[in-house]
Design a protein around this nucleic acid. Structure first.
Lengths: 221, 221
DNA sequence: GTCTATATAGCGATAGAC
DNA sequence: GTCTATCGCTATATAGAC
């Protein structure tokens, strides 16, 4: 009689294939996660309240607590979800033909668009904010974002070096330089919230000038 | 008899030159501002409480409220104080002799040290955090920090171009590129809180490689 | 002018009804 | 499994004593 209810309740979820064990969760869970991602990004960890999140998701607060344990767990889940969805990573899968300059401009344009979206800016701010998120979470964010794009461009540049189209001694350093240049002052201003809307013409001019500068430094003599 | 105490008490502060009108304020006010700068930077606007600030400053909470109106005003004052003190700006006042490469390395080293200090990183995080600070405050921060260093380096590069030591079409853009390169991935990692302690050797290698890359792109042929 | 003690409000987390 | 109502705690801001 003292019993273990765990083994008794297990057979309920034994038939796993989309069984009606708890089919209603997913919609609400997704709505909660969505609201959490938006509110945490816009108001920070301390700024966003569980009441707001529950109201925004259209559920009650206890539903939030039943799906995720507490506020920190919800924050971690929101960050993880953001990291996963923020990886199109087809930056380098696209058709890369034509002269090297055009290819680099295409890569740079994709990268800049990726980091310039309101979503990316908000996420970046949220991760950076003091007190928001612990160390493993920050590491996760870094590996999901900057690390992957870095590796992809590194491989691209390495191939071009071996093809004799570029003269780069340290490919990893050149990769960092390329991304730093593309981000540039515009990204800093956006992160700082000075202007959220850079003109499209300015962006194109910035990208072309940056690629040209990069090529002047690393073109074979 | 009904009186107006205001006019009666005014003659107390009439002798303004450091008169004993309220000489004890300044020490406490400075202590409060100092504590506010530190705590806001480390824990964010919502994270830092007025109790913590008062305790850290060694005064009571009401003293804080008597000096600064409310929490937002104290935050704004802390940011303004940070902006003012974070301007050594003798980055370019120093002895700049020798070859151009050495001068650029000196400038880059000073700039990197400026933005790498724990203080600068904390302030940067505080300003960027979502919800912290309003727009005029962010503008103030930008003009006190990035804007001034940008202008200083821009003038330096412009002079070198006219001296025939550099071949730069757009000096302003080159200035942005230089700072973006120097910040580089290291600064992003520090802002993200991944490692707070970059090795000194790595920093020097990074700076020298960056200056060399910059010079390869902009050296006269 | 400064401190101790308190009013008021909001948030995170939970108990009980359905 | 979900909702309404509530507890416990903390933080901002203030009232009264010295």
């Amino acid at each position: 009689m003292v019993s273990n209810a765990t083994s008794a309740s297990r057979h309920k979820t034994a038939a796993k294939p989309a069984g009606p064990g708890r089919p209603k969760d997913l919609g609400k869970r997704a709505a909660i996660l969505d609201a959490a991602k938006r509110l945490f990004a816009n108001e920070g960890f301390a700024g966003a309240s569980m009441d707001e999140i529950a109201a925004e998701a259209g559920v009650s607060k206890l539903t939030v607590y039943s799906h995720f344990g507490d506020k920190e767990a919800l924050f971690a889940a929101a960050v993880r979800a953001k990291c996963e969805e923020m990886l199109p990573d087809d930056l380098f899968q696209q058709e890369l033909k034509g002269p090297l300059r055009s290819q680099l401009i295409a890569i740079a344009s994709g990268f800049f668009a990726l980091i310039s979206s309101d979503e990316a800016i908000s996420t970046h701010r949220m991760m950076i904010a003091p007190g928001n998120g612990d160390d493993p979470l920050r590491k996760l964010f870094w590996e999901a974002g900057p690390q992957r794009t870095h590796d992809a461009l590194g491989a691209f540049l390495q191939a071009r070096v071996q093809a004799g189209e570029l003269d780069i001694a340290d490919t990893s350093r050149a990769t960092q330089q390329f991304f730093a240049l593309i981000k540039g002052e515009m990204h800093s201003r956006m992160i700082c919230g000075l202007y959220t809307k850079p003109l499209r013409g300015d962006v194109n001019a910035h990208i072309e000038a940056t690629v040209d500068m990069f090529l002047r430094a690393y073109a074979p003599r």
